[in-house]
Every structure is written in structure tokens, then in C-alpha cells.
Write a protein that binds this DNA or RNA. Structure first.
Length: 258
DNA sequence: ATGACCGTGGCACACGGA
């Protein structure tokens, strides 16, 4: 069995203790992190490597974005940038090869800032991701995409009244771009095992949202067909969200049979 | 009925987040 996980940590330097506790408890083979909010050289790799994990971080200046992978199995980095835009300097993508599969960790643009241009960047990014997935599927490469997609795929993926219908996380164009990914043949791992109308969230705003369960499901795992057939479990671990000084997100995990 | 926070850079508060 191989276990993959994704965790938007909202500053990796603030959340190193939470990450270490998560690793000790769940022992994922690969853990993808999003929103490092630090430069590559500021990644607390020494601290995290003490748990026996190797790592690769992709940070950027300015305290925004940033993705990383932690691994307790051998891996090689395939790419540190999503193809399709030479001008894209935002650290939002890492793809690795491990245990015979390709796994991508993504931090998809939120799309609510920067006006029309910001939202177009999100939609363009989603189309670039679709093309990358298409290329992997065309080559019969087993593919898993995990991360913060910043998309609520369906109405049941957000608590009523949490977001206005104009929000970039729920706009019809956003959901259409998500469906375009699914229509490639990718499976939404959580919904494959926990179909609607079960309500499961991965994000709660700071304040009282967690205690009211006013959440969103925006962290996902998409699987190519051969990996979907191996899917044994997909869970959201809510424990880190209940800890002191938590991230506003909590991890998603998938277990794949050998 | 409504609002409620947090992290970063940098040292006041704007900006992004979702």
C-alpha cells in the first residue's frame, strides 16, 4: 500500500510542529505541502527531515505561494513548474515520480484577487493543468494530482451561505474547468468513496467557522483510471485543524493498493 | 441580523487568502 497526502499549511515555518505530528500519526509515503510562504532556502527542511523524510521545496520571494514534497520513499523530481507559461513565476506546482507513479502537488490560484486578470490567470492555469494531465494520460502514465485546487466542485462542497455565487471558488466557469479535468478520465478520489450527499470539508476560515462547521471542500486528489482502481481509502484528517495555531486547511489522504 | 482571522513584509498597514 502507498499513502499520499496533501496539506495546505498556510506558512510552513509556522506549521512545522503540526506537520511533524501529522507525519508521525499518519506516516504518508508522500506528503505535498502548499502555501509555504517562504523562499526555497528558508524551508525548514532540517527540522522536517529529522522525522526521516527527504524533501524538495519550491518557494518564492515575497511571502506567497510555495509548494513542497516530503517523502519517506525514493523519488525523483519531474518538474517544478506547470508548463504553458514562461512568464509564470509563481511557485504552485511540483511533480515527482515515485513507486512507479507520477504525483503532482498543486496550489491552484484562488482567483478572487487581481480583478478580471486574476480570475483569468486561474482559468488559464486550470487549462494548463488539463493539458499536462492529458499528456500524462496519453502516455499511459499513472497520475495522481493532489493539492489545494481552490474549487468547490458541487453545491454540497461548501456550507450554505459560506461564499457568494460570484466567488472564484464556485463560479460556473471554475466548475466547468474542474469538470474538464474529470472528463479526461480523472477520478475525484474522495467522492469515489464518499459520494454525495455526504458533506466533507477540508477548509474552515479562521474565527468560528470550524466550530460551526462552516467549511469548504477545496483540497482534492484526482486519480487516473489505474490508480482509481487501486484506491482503498480517501480520508480528511480533521485533527490538525483542531490544534493550537492551526492552518485554516486540514490534510487529505489517499491509500492505494500495491 | 451581522461580524468575527491570520501570515507576510516590515514596523503601519496593505494585501492575499477563500
Amino acid at each position: 500500500m502507498i499513502r499520499l497526502a496533501s496539506f495546505n499549511v498556510n506558512s510552513v515555518r509556522k506549521r512545522a510542529p503540526h506537520i511533524l505530528r501529522f507525519l508521525a500519526r499518519q506516516q504518508p509515503d508522500l506528503l505535498f505541502l502548499q502555501e509555504l510562504k517562504c523562499r526555497t532556502e528558508e524551508f525548514p527542511g532540517v527540522e522536517l527531515a529529522a522525522s526521516g523524510y527527504q524533501f524538495r521545496a519550491v518557494g518564492q520571494p515575497g511571502g506567497r505561494n510555495g509548494v513542497a514534497v516530503l517523502a519517506r520513499i525514493p523519488f525523483e523530481v519531474v518538474s517544478e513548474a506547470l508548463p504553458g507559461d514562461d512568464a509564470d513565476s509563481q511557485a504552485r506546482f511540483i511533480e515527482v515520480k515515485a513507486a512507479g507513479i507520477h504525483a503532482a502537488g498543486i496550489y491552484l490560484p484562488n482567483g478572487n484577487s487581481g480583478g478580471d486578470e486574476g480570475y483569468l490567470y486561474k482559468l488559464t492555469w486550470m487549462e494548463r493543468l488539463r493539458r499536462l494531465a492529458q499528456a500524462r494520460l496519453d502516455a499511459f502514465t499513472p497520475l495522481a494530482i493532489l493539492g489545494d485546487f481552490n474549487v468547490c466542485p458541487a453545491a454540497q462542497d461548501l456550507a450554505p451561505g459560506t461564499l457568494p455565487p460570484t466567488d472564484a471558488l464556485v463560479r460556473p466557469e471554475t466548475r466547468a474547468a474542474w469538470r474538464a479535468l474529470e472528463h479526461l478520465g480523472l477520478t475525484d478520489a474522495l467522492r469515489a468513496l464518499h459520494p454525495l450527499p455526504e458533506r466533507i470539508y477540508t477548509y474552515w476560515d479562521y474565527g468560528s467557522a470550524f466550530e460551526r462547521n462552516a467549511g469548504l471542500r477545496i483540497d482534492h486528489a484526482l486519480l487516473s483510471a489505474e490508480l482509481a482502481e487501486r484506491l482503498e481509502a480517501c480520508t480528511v484528517d480533521v485533527d490538525p485543524r483542531a490544534e493550537e495555531q492551526p492552518s485554516d486547511h486540514t490534510p487529505v489522504l489517499i491509500d492505494l493498493a500495491d
